[in-house]
Design a protein around this nucleic acid. Structure first.
Lengths: 220, 220, 220, 220
DNA sequence: TATGAATGAGTATTCATTCAT
DNA sequence: TATGAATGAATACTCATTCAT
């Protein structure tokens, strides 16, 4: 096995044929990951499923990791698409309503391709070039923080950095776990309850109460 | 190469020498995982580090997965030890205090062996026999649920199953993320703040407020 | 191809079975090099011809280069054996006679396995780990230099270092070229003539003449 | 992949543009060989460095070997240029002087592009179509033989064929080894000494001495 | 029970060469 | 004539696992 594989695509496919090849490869990788698992996703298998020669695969992706990274990136783009529009709609709404939209968006995002999400989250060894891939996108965090800035006067917390971390982590974990591990036990009703509870959890936290602000002031 | 590796230990090592061998193997595996990463943890390397022949390794563990599973299990036992005693101390305390103990225990548990925890969480592909290993032990959930049952009259939530899921997931995610990804930015102060905020988040949720119960009634 | 392959054997084969495996591998490599050329000497092919699994090959040789290096070393050991005994016999003889023995030994050495010598000299790319492998062994040079030291009073040259370089290079090149490229045109008669001429060439040079010593003194 | 690559250029580039392309390709090959080594000299890389498409490369050279052969040929042309003019100057001079010029020319020739010479001599596997490429050009031999014919009456050797072989091989080997393997230890002084010694070696041999002719008569 | 030599299917990756555009 | 996307046979090397001693 070779030295230190890179993740950056080998060349940008400008021509139509190239672009198609690249798409097929990413799609094939995703499909294999979902249907056969990470273990079966060998480069030769991917090329085969993509209907592309192994040589072509390596024209566009310098390593297996690059391919997996491309799948992850594509998936996260889709997630973020969903989240972004939710936050767009949320701005201007009262806090409780906005948070509820946000949680609902998170659930919706996780439901886009739950099986792929599962493999990506559970089976991909975060090693080498894949090590730095975030579980949830940094952007998520940034967006939420910006949202908090805009709602500052409704908030009962001071440290927006910490608050963003707490909220994003919490929402992500709840939706992730709910969708992945409890998909079968989760009726639509219970899912709605979960959204409701998640939203309440976060909203309550953000509004602050019971003099917590004063207490925290001493801690920081 | 075996096609369907099993996870159950091949035999229960009753005799002292066997027990020692098994321990050496698990210890060696953990050490390699931490120091060299999952990729370098080949069975031959593990046997070498354990000072045991590869043949003997396979006398006690039917597959590589069994070995890794043993490491995971041992680690989780240790985590749960910590959590259990925290919950012991918590019973009888008022809700807020109890939750804070619980969150603090979670942080403490994650700090037992953060590097091993990291590898176990990030690098081990949950594939094949390792697929069904839970991120957090089922016991965690059960214990917390029992705790909630005992504090029912302080709670503002009805569905204890859902509440347990929400709380355990949230606490686990917050402490996990904090310890793993933010270890370097996390001063003791900020860690204390995180525990405080986490506890407040969960406590607020459990106490219920702002007539949420009534609202939720409509939603369900 | 991997990063920087090493040449040192992976483990020393102590047990009889191991030793046999190692020998088979070296022998198979030499045979393939001779019969099929360097290009065909893939590790899989070598293992196959050696009647050994590819895995076993890599138990004893960390890379293809290590295998080739072992063949080269073995070959050079054999060459040097021949040369050493020639020099043994030569010590005590008068210069002309000694040199003739030496040249004859060189020819004899090159005839041990001319085809292997050919492949080793012409087909092995001196790249990477094989880069530093000398065409003729350093020992050759050392031995000859020692021989010159012992015959100093018969010599007409001052700089024994330079003289050794000149003589060893010359003898090596003559015999090498003669045996390799002209094997078919070289009758026994012509070969004898070549030995004679080579010996005369070197002897004349070592005895010095025409006041060259004085001229060289100015040059140095 | 082609199984039997040919060495003859695919077409004679008569037009100026074609000629330029061919030159660029040969130059690029040489440059890569020197700067990155034989291993890195893939046809795609050569085409890239030459600023030519891989398709065009194969319009002018039927195989990678043909390209390398062209580089070798070009290099040898340059070497021979140097040698030829040395022999031109040498004709008419007394033997000792002429030989010294010849040796000096050989050194000079090897210094034209020592790094390319090194790669060509050490790294190119003489395999397949490259197998028959001579280490030193046949022309070298022919020229020297002609030179000997013209100086016959100064010589003390009968077999000019053999003498040419001995002289050309010796001079080639001395200069080659000196320039390649001892470049760093070789000061200008020592290089001059080497030329001097080499010339003396060959001159002495050619003049014959100590009744060697008579002795050889008995040997043959 | 222990050993460690042997196994070989499997993997990522390269590169000379072709051919449709 | 030029291009460069595509090809795929070939290669070096790994590692979980077995089994003869």
């Amino acid at each position: 096995m070779a030295r230190k594989p890179v993740t950056r695509p080998r060349k940008i496919a400008t021509q139509a044929r190239s672009r198609a090849t690249v798409d097929h490869l990413i799609e094939a990788t995703a499909r294999i990951l979902v249907k056969e698992g990470f273990d079966k996703a060998s480069t030769n298998r991917i090329a085969e499923v993509a209907g592309v020669s192994i040589g072509s695969l390596y024209q566009y992706f310098p390593s297996k990791e690059a391919l997996v990274a491309a799948v992850i990136e594509r998936h996260q783009q889709q997630l973020m698409q969903t989240v972004r529009s939710a936050l767009d709609r949320a701005s201007g709404q009262p806090l409780g309503q906005a948070v509820r939209s946000f949680v609902a968006a998170a659930v919706q995002a996780h439901r886009l391709d739950p099986r792929l999400h599962h493999v990506l989250a559970e089976q991909i060894p975060r090693v080498g070039p894949l090590e730095k891939l975030e579980t949830f996108s940094r952007e998520n965090f940034t967006l939420f923080r910006a949202f908090l800035e805009g709602t500052r006067d409704e908030l009962g917390v001071d440290d927006l950095e910490l608050a963003s971390f707490v909220c994003v982590t919490t929402i992500e974990a709840l939706t992730h776990n709910a969708v992945l591990h409890h998909a079968k036990v989760l009726t639509e009703d219970r899912m709605a309850a979960l959204i409701e509870d998640g939203a309440r959890l976060v909203t309550g936290y953000l509004q602050g109460q019971r003099g917590s602000r004063r207490r925290r002031a001493r801690v920081d």
